[in-house]
């Protein structure tokens, strides 16, 4: 158990180093941000001065060395454009993205699992076909287009919901989020729905195929032979049995949602990290991009670890195996 966690953290550390290297050299290869930062009328001398101040006149490997050196003291560098600390810029906007991803995954699970169970336990039925068709649409319709359509229908035509921003923030336990006010919830509904579409389809399909397989298994037949209600067979026996792959997928999707909220955040002007990333890439603002990637990768590593831990509680056989293989 401890070994597993330590191993995962070590792995995650390796991934962080690799990602920082790739991002650093990648942006270096794209070009020199100085020309985007200084006034076009500035003299060559001014340009050199700015480049020197940003440390961009140093050779690449030295720049990376300096970056890693200051990392040790918790400094991720300052934005080239705003001169604010890069990490602070990201952390300021991270709650907006996290709450959006969280809301989306909740919608995906709450709608996707029952839909998948209903479809999987009635294979070939009309309901099954409806769920399958809807999930294909959920996979294949482009996010930005669905987002625009949601705005068009619910914000413009019907006027029920706002189309941009986080709305009023509430605070609870020192966390500020739009999930805590009614106005905030009204604001988050459309973007969360937009972002939820893909994972919802995935959850529904995975649940459906899992349920279909489980239906054929002897323990389901035995459970029925005991005379317990069909509801208990489906929601306790089958759902718990198929929950391991679903939880894995939710864990992975949550990371992906944080990382790919970019499109939704742009469409709904959601002030999250995705929007910040797009702006920063446009400005070749390397410290912000690198800091963003490191944060996202850390989130992935953490989610993977959490997923593993949830396994242990869901599937006793994993617990058993982990114990058996540990020396």
């Amino acid at each position: 158990m401890v070994k597993l966690i330590a191993g995962r953290i070590l792995q995650g550390f390796g991934v962080l180093v690799a990602v920082s290297l790739i991002a650093f050299f990648g942006i270096y290869a794209i070009g020199d941000p100085t020309s985007l930062l200084v006034d076009p009328q500035a003299t060559q001398q001014d340009v050199e001065q700015v480049r020197h101040n940003l440390g961009l006149d140093q050779p690449m490997w030295r720049q990376y060395g300096l970056f890693v050196g200051s990392l040790a003291s918790g400094d991720f560098g300052r934005s080239f454009a705003t001169h604010e600390p890069a990490m602070r810029m990201i952390l300021e906007r991270l709650p907006a993205t996290l709450e959006l991803a969280l809301a989306a995954i909740v919608i995906a699970v709450v709608a996707g699992v029952p839909a998948g169970l209903a479809a999987g336990t009635h294979p070939g039925s009309r309901l099954d076909r409806v769920v399958m068709t809807a999930s294909i649409l959920g996979f294949s319709l482009p996010t930005f287009w669905v987002g625009l359509m949601l705005i068009l229908v619910f914000a413009v035509n019907l006027g029920w919901l706002p189309s941009f921003g986080r709305g009023e923030l509430g605070s609870w336990l020192g966390i500020h989020s739009s999930l805590f006010t009614l106005d905030g919830l009204r604001h988050i509904l459309l973007p969360a729905l937009n972002l939820a579409l893909f994972p919802m389809s995935l959850v529904a399909r995975l649940t459906r195929s899992g349920a279909r397989e489980a239906l054929e298994l002897d323990f389901v037949r035995f459970a029925r032979a005991k005379g317990i209600s069909e509801r208990r067979v489906v929601f306790v026996h089958i759902l718990k049995y198929i929950s391991v792959p679903i939880v894995t997928m939710i864990g992975m999707q949550l990371g992906l949602l944080v990382a790919f909220a970019i499109v939704t955040e742009s469409v709904f002007s959601w002030p999250g990290t995705g929007k910040l990333l797009i702006e920063s890439i446009g400005r070749l603002d390397r410290p912000v991009v690198v800091a963003y990637l490191l944060v996202i990768v850390s989130i992935f590593v953490l989610l993977n670890l959490l997923t593993d831990l949830v396994y242990l509680t869901l599937d006793p056989r994993v617990r058993f195996d982990a114990g058996a293989h540990a020396e």
Binding site: F219, F222, A223, V236, Y241, P316, R317
Partner: peptide, 8 residues
């Protein structure tokens, strides 16, 4: 197979 592996 006739007992559910994930329930006590």
């Amino acid at each position: 197979m006739s007992l559910n592996p994930v329930l006590r």
